[in-house]
Structure formats: structure tokens, C-alpha cells
Amino acid sequence: MKPADTVARLDAWLREHAPGDFGQLAPPADPRLVDGIAPDRFDLHPDVRSWLELHDGSAVDRVLAAGAFVPTDFPLLGAARMSDGLRDMEEEVARAVEDDEAEYVVGVTADVRWLPVALNHTGGQLVVDHREGPGFGAVLELDPSVGLNGVKRWDSLSHLLETVLEALAGGSPVPTATGRKAVPRIEADGVPLPHVVWDVHYG
């Protein structure tokens, strides 16, 4: 399924069942911001461009809990924050090279071709791998709080969106990078608008 078709179906599901999340979806990104994410570095994966052509992130108001409908509780980033995240990656790699610690960092905890596309409240990141090779376009998870270093979660951003849509529509669990299961539910009590939360099951 084309990314635009998946996002259209996801938008419709959120509008009906999780209006808090739907209201957090930003309009399309400014094409100039998209072109400025990685100029003279690499071409953006088509899935990243497709997402940004539809929504410039999923957390218009970052203070609200809504918008984090990707397991586990990740809001998707817009163009400006992707650009900032990439610069942070580049700076981390540069520091590692300068300190002669590249083997412990590059391709492990940071890479100049890892484009951050989601960030959760614990500091975990989802990145799209733009390195050449069979892993091109894959979505990896990084989370130093639980020792995750570039663990592959999905084959592509399209695959991520399809998985989320299937899980939300069917209430089915999604395996986490640590082997547990995240199950979606709608939080409606004590909130202005219902939104998706992911409950992690440790058993």
C-alpha cells in the first residue's frame, strides 16, 4: 500500500476513534523545510517525504499527551525537528571521532545517516536508516535508558504506519524492541479528547 493511502486510512481511524490524536496532526510541511533537512548530505527516503507531504509531525502541541500513537508512545516529528535531530547526530559522531571513540558510537548510538523521525518522553528515538545497503529505509530504535542501540523495528516508515494502523484497528499487540508486547487502548477518562496510549505487557 502506498504511504499516502495508509496515512489517509490512519487519519480516518484517528478522526473517529482518537480525536485527540487526530487534532495533533500538523498540516503538510513547507517544502523548503523538507529540502533543508539533509542538503548536500543524502536524499531523503521517499517514505519520509511522503509523510511530510501529508503531515509536518503528529504533535502540534508537545505539552499534550495526545499525538503519540506510534508504539511505544512516540509522536512523529516534523521537518524542523528532523533537521535538528540530524544535526545532533552529526555533532555526536564528530565528538566521538575527536575523542577516538568512533567504534563505540558510529552505527551504534549515532550515525550521520540516521534521520530521527520520532522522539518519546524517555529520550528514545526512532530513526530512518539512510546508509546504503540492504537496511536502507529501515526504522531503528535507540533508547539508552534500556540499552537499545539501533535495533531494527520496521522495514520502512510505510511498514511502521501499516503496523500501527493494523494494531489500532484490531486492538492487536505490537512487539517492542525488548521483546515485550505493546497493546493500544483509547484513553478517554479525565482528558479533553480521547487519544491512543500503549500499555506494555511484561509477561
Rank of each mutant, 00 (worst) to 15 (best):
S83A: 15
F136Y: 15
D21Q: 05
F42N: 03
E92R: 13
N149C: 15
G107W: 02
V63F: 13
V151L: 12
A4Y: 10
G123K: 02
P19L: 08
P134C: 06
P31V: 05
A182L: 07
G85I: 03
H45I: 04
A188Q: 09
E187V: 14
V105H: 01
H130A: 01
A79Y: 02
V174D: 03
P39F: 07
R9L: 10
A4N: 12
V183Y: 02
G170C: 13
P31S: 09
A66Y: 04
P173H: 07
V93S: 03
V151E: 13
V200N: 05
K152Y: 05
L115E: 01
S156E: 09
V97I: 15
V151R: 11
S58F: 03
R32T: 14
A12T: 09
W198V: 02
P192Y: 06
R87K: 12
A177H: 04
L10R: 06
L54T: 15
H195F: 14
A18Q: 05
S156R: 08
R185S: 12
A68S: 12
V93A: 04
D84K: 09
L165P: 03
R81G: 02
W51A: 14
P184Y: 01
E101A: 15
K152M: 14
R131N: 10
V139Y: 02
P116W: 00
N149T: 12
E166A: 15
A182K: 03
S50T: 15
V97T: 12
S58C: 09
G23Q: 02
D30C: 05
L119W: 12
V164R: 00
W51E: 08
P144L: 13
P184T: 01
S172E: 12
G85F: 05
R185I: 05
L76K: 00
P134H: 06
F74N: 01
L52I: 11
D5H: 13
G171K: 06
W198I: 04
D43C: 08
T109P: 01
A177S: 12
S145H: 09
H17E: 15
V48G: 02
G179E: 07
L140S: 03
P134R: 04
A102D: 10
E53V: 07
L115Q: 03
S50V: 12
A169H: 06
P192M: 04
V106A: 10
G135I: 05
P184D: 00
K2F: 09
G203D: 14
Y202E: 15
D56E: 00
V117Q: 07
T163F: 00
E101M: 13
G190W: 08
V106S: 07
F22W: 14
A79L: 05
D40Q: 13
A65V: 10
P173D: 08
P75T: 01
R113N: 11
P173W: 03
R62T: 13
D35Y: 07
N120G: 06
T163G: 01
H17Y: 12
L193F: 11
V196H: 00
V105Q: 04
